[in-house]
Amino acid sequence: MPGFRLQRRREVADEALVRSLFAEHGRAMLAYATQLTRDRAAAEDVVQEALVRAWRHPESLVNGKGSVRGWLLTVIRNIVTDQIRARNARAPEVRESPVDVPSDEDHAEQVVNAMVVVDALSQLSTEHREVLEQLYLQGCTVTEAAKALGIPPGTVKSRSFYALRALREIKSLSPAGTERSAS
């Protein structure tokens, strides 16, 4: 049955896309989702939903201005934000403790920046990015970073200083610079 064949072929092709996204970005997606939800099981559900959305709208993966990873992480953030909003909307009926919900929201807002940071880092020069990753993401001391990068400690210090300033030029971290929909 040719119809079936065609359908089957599409499925195979579709799965290849999802598998490749998972293979390349799965770790980053799950790390971000886990940070947002603070719950591995919930994070896995969010990643699953994000991959399904990518599969439904493959064109949007590449039509945006940002990177594929940026798109995927944005989708993750939106899913988590929607969940929090939905929970908030339900709150009066189920009498959720009013303390819990805002704290979720606060937490989410704090880590929303992670995506912004990852995107901004990708725009830095390699030298700048490396030194910031060593110092702040991996938590190395200046001496350790100098050794890992094969540059003098003084260079680590000055380079990281200029790298931070470059980041500041690229993106604003202030709340005014982040999008908040007021629905």
């Binding site: 293979a23 390349e24 799965g26 980053a28 880590v111 993401l137």
Partner: peptide, 12 residues
């Protein structure tokens, strides 16, 4: 605050 894994490639 960025989890290091967010910069890593590969599957989880």
């Amino acid at each position: 605050a960025v989890p290091e894994a967010m910069l890593l490639d590969g599957p989880p």
